[in-house]
Amino acid sequence: MDTRFCRSHADHYARHGSPYKASYGAREIQPYRAAALGWLEANQSDTYVANAVDRVATLLRAAGPHVEAFRLRGLSPEERAKAAWARLRKAGIDPRRVVAAWLAAEMIINDDPQAERKAEFRQVQAAKLVHRMASGTHKRWGEGLTATELHVYPRPRGRVLRHMGEALERACELLVEHHRSALPKLSSDGRQA
């Protein structure tokens, strides 16, 4: 029972990290992701960039065994978050893309005049981007017309996103602290300014 919000606002808070502000859409955040990835590639020799990428690579390596998305029921939020990192590792996601997701969340929130400025919102926005990179499990049994397929996608919400976001924030905190002003700026049409 939530003592602060009604049911719809509590659900919104679990999904988006804010009871009032919705998550950014794919069209809104894609230019920021592209700009952040380009900036990371251009500055890959920087100590703080290398540190953030190494920390994310460590998160992926230390996530434990891969758990199929349909076997998550009954696991704690921490275990589900680790399973999400393990799915990313199994999918071969480049750690730079994960760091770029955090930077994209930082950049879009800084550019938004009506942004939610709480750390939890930033963590959830970045975690949602990362969670989508390798979110599902896909199985196929048999061949031809009699083949059976199973496609399961875990829901990105609640404490799982908070755990992923906190881990990602810790991995990228030095990079953001030292290069916040050097991150690319985007104009209103999505191009670098």
Score class of each variant (00 low, 15 high):
82 K>N: 12
82 K>V: 01
83 A>P: 02
83 A>Y: 05
83 A>I: 06
84 A>N: 11
84 A>W: 08
85 W>S: 00
85 W>D: 01
86 A>M: 08
87 R>Q: 03
88 L>K: 01
88 L>H: 02
89 R>D: 05
90 K>D: 00
91 A>N: 10
91 A>C: 05
92 G>S: 01
95 P>W: 02
95 P>I: 02
95 P>A: 06
97 R>I: 00
97 R>S: 05
99 V>M: 05
99 V>I: 12
99 V>Q: 02
99 V>F: 06
100 A>W: 04
100 A>E: 02
100 A>P: 03
101 A>V: 01
102 W>M: 15
102 W>I: 04
103 L>N: 00
103 L>I: 01
105 A>Y: 00
106 E>N: 08
106 E>I: 05
106 E>V: 13
107 M>D: 00
107 M>K: 04
108 I>W: 02
108 I>N: 01
109 I>P: 00
110 N>F: 02
110 N>G: 10
110 N>A: 15
111 D>K: 09
111 D>W: 03
111 D>S: 14
112 D>S: 05
112 D>H: 07
112 D>A: 06
113 P>C: 06
113 P>V: 06
114 Q>A: 12
114 Q>G: 09
114 Q>D: 13
115 A>C: 09
115 A>M: 07
116 E>I: 02
117 R>N: 11
118 K>N: 11
118 K>C: 07
122 R>V: 00
124 V>G: 03
124 V>S: 04
124 V>M: 09
126 A>M: 07
127 A>P: 06
127 A>H: 08
128 K>A: 07
128 K>R: 15
128 K>M: 12
129 L>S: 09
130 V>S: 06
130 V>E: 05
131 H>G: 04
131 H>E: 08
133 M>Y: 11
133 M>I: 08
135 S>T: 11
135 S>Q: 15
137 T>C: 08
137 T>R: 02
138 H>L: 12
138 H>C: 07
138 H>K: 12
139 K>I: 05
140 R>P: 00
140 R>N: 04
141 W>E: 13
142 G>L: 07
142 G>A: 09
143 E>Y: 14
143 E>R: 15
144 G>H: 04
144 G>Q: 03
144 G>I: 03
145 L>M: 10
145 L>R: 11
147 A>R: 10
147 A>T: 04
147 A>S: 14
149 E>L: 09
149 E>R: 13
150 L>T: 11
151 H>Q: 13
152 V>A: 12
153 Y>P: 01
153 Y>A: 10
153 Y>L: 14
153 Y>R: 15
153 Y>Q: 15
153 Y>E: 15
154 P>D: 09
154 P>I: 09
155 R>M: 12
156 P>S: 15
156 P>I: 03
157 R>G: 01
157 R>C: 07
157 R>V: 09
158 G>P: 06
159 R>A: 15
159 R>Q: 15
160 V>R: 08
160 V>Y: 07
160 V>C: 10
161 L>N: 03
162 R>Y: 10
162 R>A: 10
163 H>Y: 14
163 H>A: 11
163 H>M: 10
164 M>I: 15
165 G>D: 02
166 E>W: 14
168 L>M: 06
169 E>A: 12
169 E>N: 09
170 R>A: 12
170 R>M: 11
170 R>I: 05
172 C>R: 05
173 E>V: 08
173 E>I: 07
173 E>M: 07
176 V>Q: 01
176 V>L: 05
176 V>K: 00
177 E>W: 08
178 H>S: 10
178 H>D: 06
